[in-house]
Simulated scan of single mutants.
Amino acid sequence: MTDRYAKYQRLKFDWPDERILRVTMENPGRLNSADRIMHGELVEVWRDIDSDPNVSAAIIRGAGNAFSAGGDLDLVKEMSEDFETLTRVWKEARDLVYNLVNCSKPLVSAMEGPAVGAGLVAGLLADISIASRTARIIDGHTRLGVAAGDHAAIVWPLLCGLAKSKYYLMLCEPVSGEEAERIGLVSLCTEPEDLHDKALEVARKLAVGSPTALRWTKYALNNWLRMAGPTFDTSLALEFMGFNGPDVREGLASLREKRKPEFNPKCPL
């Protein structure tokens, strides 16, 4: 492993094939939820991958049987109580989206189990998003008591249309991998046992493609996301405004109760 990845704590790295870097989100016992450390690392890693001459394609997945259960509840609580934490995470949330959009290397996501909130940003903004049939994709914001910010406003309407976006984002309904493929929210759906093999197969094809052609095709297509930038910035501001409101305290209490006595994969949020 090159030195540029040695600094990471919550993200683990391996090379499943030549010039393919696989990034694994790992937060043991918490369904790979994005705590303070992981949230910051998910911002920085795309810059490192973009500038790494040894990487032609990357894969993002979660450790074990979960992609990511979203924002860690301890971090959410800290954001609701401390303005400096809130502003730091707001900037990280913005940079996470833009760093993903601007990364020139092709990215494949492999989602299984809960795929929620902050982790879902990488899952859905990947160039090729793959979900197992049994994945549970949930935005999670309105259940917590804040506006659906992060990636949702910038990418959900483009992927699956405004009507479906409103239904799933406002009601916070889970989307199975099978349904996500049907409505166009993800690129592909596989059986759970085939997920990681399929992600590697796709990454191999990308890794041997023309770097110039892929880079500029991705850049051109992502202009749709860049044009939605003002909408995204507004949604993010509205989301983080909500962390000072009473709904977040009620939402946190409800979510903590659902996660007792341990994290429940059937109810990541």
Rank of each mutant, 00 (worst) to 15 (best):
P174H: 11
I183C: 03
A163H: 07
L124P: 00
F240T: 10
L188D: 02
H151S: 02
E178R: 10
R136Y: 03
W156M: 15
S132T: 05
L124F: 01
E178L: 02
K205I: 14
E173F: 06
D139E: 15
W224M: 11
W156N: 13
D197L: 04
A135M: 07
G184Y: 10
L200E: 14
D127R: 00
R136Q: 05
G229T: 15
C189I: 09
V108Q: 13
Y219E: 12
A110W: 14
R215Y: 04
T190W: 01
P230E: 07
S129E: 10
V202T: 05
H151R: 01
G184N: 15
V146M: 09
L206R: 09
V175P: 04
F232G: 03
V202M: 01
S132Y: 03
L188V: 02
G140V: 14
R182G: 02
T190D: 05
R215N: 14
H151F: 00
M111R: 11
A118P: 07
I130E: 03
F232A: 11
G161S: 14
E181F: 06
H151Q: 00
L200Y: 12
A115Y: 04
A148V: 04
F240N: 08
K205Y: 14
A147Q: 09
A207P: 04
E178S: 01
Y168M: 08
R133D: 10
L125R: 08
A220N: 10
E112Q: 13
S235C: 06
L214T: 11
L185N: 06
L120N: 02
P211Y: 12
L214W: 07
G229S: 07
E201L: 15
V208Y: 06
A220Y: 02
M111H: 11
K198L: 08
G123R: 05
G140Q: 12
S187V: 12
V146G: 08
L162Q: 11
L185H: 08
K164C: 07
A152Y: 02
S210R: 07
N222D: 14
G123N: 09
A207M: 08
A207F: 01
P211N: 01
H141I: 00
R182D: 05
G177V: 11
R136C: 06
C172P: 05
K205Q: 15
V175W: 05
E173W: 04
G140F: 04
Y168W: 06
T190R: 02
I154G: 04
P174K: 10
A213V: 13
S165R: 03
F240K: 09
I183H: 04
I138L: 15
E181K: 05
Y219S: 13
R226V: 09
W224Q: 12
L159H: 00
V175Q: 09
T142K: 08
P230N: 04
I130V: 10
S176K: 07
I154Y: 04
T217P: 00
S176A: 06
C160Y: 05
A118M: 15
A153S: 13
I130K: 03
P106M: 05
Y168F: 15
P106Y: 04
